[in-house]
């Protein structure tokens, strides 16, 4: 049985004040997630990730299509008791303490009264908030609210956990802890479906990922499979500050670092560039295959780097196939391949 089965789910909103026009937030989406997997749902802002999660949670209604979670329809109350959901940038009742909030959500999820206190204490400890359980939520920082959000999503020990941007608002330590928590959930046999625009998180955690852009599914596979399907690249470093004319004619981006030059190029041009360097009597220092990353796939699918507009850059993580130039580096030539 699939943990999640999305069968042509589609959402079109009607926008505008007087003359309403249709805006397709999600094109027909077909997707399955197996039980026990960590599944990453990737895409820039406005890609349709949150819309998909809202459709699965029954917060918005599909224009067409359907979905099943744990083999049950989206409006099945038995299914809802077996899932947990963390919305993006969660916000909770200001005047409740973290413990009271979790008790409330536990009651709504049908957790037995005699187990509730123990579960709340355990989950507070799990998200590192055991000391803050009695503090009103209005006094919580954004990162602490995010932890409470994660706590309420796993409190009732759901089989499938949906997390919308779970790392948002967390400091590096918090992100590390959430990553560990997601891995723990997997080791407990739970399915985790999380959306993110931070590719390093997805690459580090996910068994499989789906890339969504402008409401359309662009690809779904294991991370390695996605990257493997891309054009291979190599990095060549040589001594000196000159670039042979033949190499410049290819339009390869060559950068200088001290007294060496470096270029990253498609594997198919490797022999041609090496011959050109040898012809010019330039000493080749290294030739290294570049590991293709999820980010490379992402950029290829989206056409261009996407600004997230949230302060977190989708490309701000150490995943680049093209290493950042040193501070004294500067590009010396660029043209279209």
């Amino acid at each position: 049985m699939h943990a999640i089965e999305i069968l042509g789910l589609e959402k079109t909103y009607r926008v505008g004040f007087w003359r309403k026009r249709p805006k397709q937030a999600l094109r027909p989406l077909f997707l399955t997630v197996e039980e026990g997997q960590i599944f990453g749902f990737l895409g820039p802002n406005g890609a349709g990730k949150t819309t998909t999660l809202k459709l699965l949670m029954g917060l918005v209604f599909p224009s067409a299509g359907t979905a099943r979670i744990l083999g049950m329809e989206l409006d099945d109350r038995r299914m809802k008791a077996q899932i947990g959901f963390l919305p993006e940038q969660p916000y909770f009742y200001d005047h409740l303490t973290a413990r009271e909030l979790l008790r409330y959500f536990g009651q709504l999820s049908g957790v037995e009264a005699r187990q509730l206190g123990r579960r709340v204490d355990r989950v507070l400890e799990r998200v590192g908030l055991q000391e803050a359980g009695g503090v009103e939520l209005r006094k919580f920082s954004k990162g602490m609210l995010q932890r409470v959000g994660i706590a309420q999503a796993i409190l009732h020990e759901p089989r499938v956990v949906f997390l919308d941007e779970p790392m948002s608002g967390l400091d590096p330590m918090g992100r590390f802890e959430v990553r560990s928590l997601i891995e723990e959930l997997k080791s407990e046999g739970k399915t985790v479906f999380f959306s993110t625009h931070i590719l390093s998180d997805a690459e580090a955690l996910c068994d499989r990922v789906a890339v969504l852009h402008l409401g359309e599914l662009r690809g779904v596979a294991a991370v390695e499979e996605l990257a493997a399907g891309m054009q291979a690249k190599v990095e060549i470093v040589w001594q000196g500050n000159s670039v042979p004319a033949a190499v410049q004619a290819l339009g390869i981006d060559c950068r200088t670092a001290g007294d060496t030059m470096r270029a990253v190029l498609p594997e198919e041009h490797q022999d041609f560039v090496l011959e050109a360097l040898i012809r010019e009597h330039l000493r080749v220092i290294s030739l290294t295959p570049v590991r293709m990353s999820l980010e490379d796939y992402f950029v290829a699918q989206l056409g261009e780097p996407v600004s997230t507009g949230k302060g977190d850059s989708a490309f701000g993580q150490p995943l680049r196939s093209i290493p950042e130039p040193a501070s004294d580096s500067e590009p010396v030539g660029r043209a279209r391949l």
């Binding site: 917060l59 109350r77 809802k80 008791a81 940038q89 969660p90 916000y91 999820s109 049908g110």
Partner: peptide
Amino acid sequence: EKRTLYTVLSRPVR
């Protein structure tokens, strides 16, 4: 507006 409803309606609550 505050999205508190999302965490309520994603539970077995009609």
